[in-house]
Design a protein around this nucleic acid. Structure first.
Length: 155
DNA sequence: GCCAACGTTGGC
DNA sequence: GCCAACGTTGGC
């Protein structure tokens, strides 16, 4: 039995990397490096190929879910943790047991209209979304199948 | 093990 | 640019 497909939401500041950047990327794929939060890392470690990802623009006007991507490579060591020149360099990470992982995701589609944070908040069915929890800053987070389905109906 | 200080996230 | 909320660090 194949494992059931899982759903996620990943945040990116469009000024740094937007859904258009993903669409234009080589193979329409990118490595999701730079995550330095244990909970977010653990969620990436539990991702499987084929898992579906809501692409969210944070620090955007408006902040919004803007499209869909898919996991095409499961968790592997994030090389930026060992790169002294990199902003995300982590001197505490031991190369024999790397602390930080990343996954690769591929562009699937961009919504014709972004689904803004305000719109999401208005949906009673989405009231328990991790994204909408007060003070929620997790950059990689799970989405339930029901939340996923509902969001696709309001796009 | 507590908790103050600090750095970061991200909406506004 | 502001600042509330959060995660991490480190002194004790």
């Amino acid at each position: 039995m194949p494992k059931k497909r899982q759903y996620w939401l990943m945040k990116s500041e469009p000024s740094a990397f937007s859904i258009d950047d993903l669409r234009r990327a080589s193979q329409q794929t990118t490595g999701w490096d730079g995550v330095r939060n244990y909970q977010a890392r653990n969620f990436m470690r539990s991702m499987a190929i084929g898992d579906q990802v809501l692409f969210y623009h944070s620090n955007a006007d408006p902040p919004a879910v803007v499209g869909i991507a898919e996991v095409v490579k499961t968790a592997y060591a994030d090389p930026t943790q060992f790169d002294k020149q990199d902003k995300h360099y982590d001197p505490e990470s031991d190369p024999s047991t790397p602390r930080w992982d990343m996954v690769d995701i591929k562009y699937i589609r961009k919504f014709s209209q972004p689904v803004s944070l305000d719109q999401l908040r208005k949906e009673p069915k989405l009231k328990d979304m991790v994204l909408l929890r007060k003070g929620s800053r997790l950059s990689v987070q799970p989405v339930t199948p029901a939340e996923w389905e509902h969001i696709l109906t309001i796009v």
